[in-house]
Design a protein around this nucleic acid. Structure first.
Lengths: 211, 211
DNA sequence: TCGCGAGATTGATCAGGATCAAAGATTGTG
DNA sequence: CACAATCTTTGATCCTGATCAATCTCGCGA
């Protein structure tokens, strides 16, 4: 990524908008980005949160499929498409690397689809927290506390619940001493067994079990 | 894809199982495949249906992330990983092609996540039918009738509804003359306007609309 | 053609969120 | 330091699908 330029985005700054022609892709260096779509009625659906090391902006259509906005202050490498293509032709390694990243993204999207398909609030939130925890771990950050850079509304837009339900779920988990809400952005797991248990499938969508 | 071998799978035959080491990837030539995960309780969640032209089996981990099973009789090109790698190094074009396919898959997975996040049954089913219709069109098949190669249970496992709700939704759509159920596998759209309208967001998840 | 069996339909009940509205915290600012 | 703007929490009601179980039906093989 030597020919990429380092760019900065302020908190809440738009990075690109769905439908615009793809001029460059970004490789997040620090901060958090959300990638989302806007429904006809104005509601947002967050497709993914992107952290350090994640790629964003790739599209086969020549136009961005989603919009992207910085949730925190963000620094990223900006890599214009023509340069990317030139490099793809020169170094097969790069192509391989991109393919790996994309496979990860697919897995991530599938996990997200599962998360969102859950009907009950607690499993959803717990699974969401597990996801954040794993990402944190994979970035080598401390794991004793989970950091939530996004607000409750955005969590709702990601997990597919109303703002109210998100709040209630967090409070319930705290009330049951499964987690501790140190403040809006920091959660600690108090009872790991109960926590992991909740991520299982006590109730939920399970009728279909034939064949 | 000249060095790939053509393989056949019978209806309901397993193609690979999650966790197995990745030996080869497949490029579907004909038929339909489902890619799914099995929950601890035995329930299946279908991540995607694969049709002619789709790639399956790519994984960055060296192990299949999902299981795959033929829904109909299937023919596919089987491409062992070592050969794939050799070719990736020789032809940058191939890498580019794979990247495009993966981007499509990501988009598909995101659409799926959205579909699954819908609470109401009718929008879900309508969106599912739209998806099938588009795929059919993109394969150049006739579009006047939508073909459902999978059974109701599998539709439920894909859209995230119970078998019963899937059935009810189809019957309701038929009762309202939005669609016609020619038989279990063939649906015709009777009222396109109402159909597309239903895919919109009349109710559903929308509370979060601030900032 | 008849009967079998997987797949599909349907009904009644129940649980869990969405919604809407109103008040309570927090954070940052002047 | 107090205020303002956000962000969050909480309550009451309604709506929708999950569940479970019983029945129906179409397609297929004998």
């Amino acid at each position: 990524m030597n020919i990429a330029s380092l760019v900065r985005f302020k908190k809440r700054q738009e990075i690109y908008r769905a439908g615009e022609p793809v001029e460059a892709i970004y490789n997040v260096v620090s901060g958090v980005v959300k990638s989302f779509s806007v429904d006809p009625d104005g509601g947002e659906r967050i497709n993914t949160f992107l952290f350090a090391g994640d790629l964003l902006g790739l599209s086969e259509e020549g136009r961005y499929a989603n919009s992207a906005e910085a949730i925190t202050a963000v620094t990223a490498y900006r890599l214009p498409i023509p340069k990317l293509q030139r490099h793809l032709h020169r170094e097969a390694e790069l192509g391989f690397h991109v393919i790996c990243k994309l496979c990860q993204e697919i897995r991530e999207a599938q996990r997200h689809a599962f998360l969102v398909s859950r009907r009950e609030a607690l499993p959803k939130i717990v699974m969401f927290l597990q996801m954040l925890e794993q990402l944190q771990a994979s970035r080598g950050e401390p794991t004793n506390e989970i950091h939530l850079p996004m607000d409750r509304t955005e969590i709702g837009e990601y997990v597919g619940m109303s703002l109210g339900a998100v709040s209630r779920a967090f409070r319930k988990l705290a009330a049951d001493a499964v987690i501790e809400l140190r403040n809006r952005q920091h959660v600690k797991i108090r009872n790991r067994a109960a926590f992991d248990e909740l991520a299982g499938m006590p109730g939920g969508l399970a009728e279909g079990r034939r064949r």
